[in-house]
């Protein structure tokens, strides 16, 4: 992601996550915005501030062909706590995203 950001520019990158619950999604989102919270790996201390969404958030869902979404995602949408994921993702974006 760091390489892509350098190659294409941070303003042109959108990260789409598929984590199974809010906390994990939030950690991944934090990694690509404020930097790796565990201070490990190439994004430790690197604040990319990228746009980041979970695949079940309406911003992404509305961009996807409904039939493909039905085939690939709808089952997990039923299983996941979408409200919790949206809450977590929104919070991270509001705090650290540089491109909204």
């Amino acid at each position: 992601m760091k390489e892509f950001t350098e190659e294409f520019g941070a303003e042109n990158i959108v990260i789409v996550l598929g984590a199974a619950e809010g906390e994990a999604a939030g950690l991944a989102a934090e990694t690509v915005t404020a930097g790796d919270p565990t201070f490990a790996g190439p994004l430790a201390g690197v604040q990319l501030g990228l746009r980041v969404y979970h695949v079940c958030e309406p911003e992404i869902k509305d961009e996807v062909d409904p039939q493909v979404y039905e085939e690939q995602i709808s089952m997990m949408e039923m299983v996941l706590d979408i409200d919790d994921i949206i809450k977590e993702m929104t919070s991270i974006r509001e705090q650290y995203c540089k491109y909204n």
Partner: peptide, 28 residues
């Protein structure tokens, strides 16, 4: 931090059952 693995599997099978009309969504 790896969650409840069997339960996650059962939820997925249940959700699939709801999508296919084998159960109602409320019965998940």
């Amino acid at each position: 931090g790896a969650g409840n693995v069997p339960e996650a599997n059962y939820k997925m099978i249940g959700a699939l059952a709801a999508m296919r009309g084998d159960i109602q969504k409320a019965e998940l």
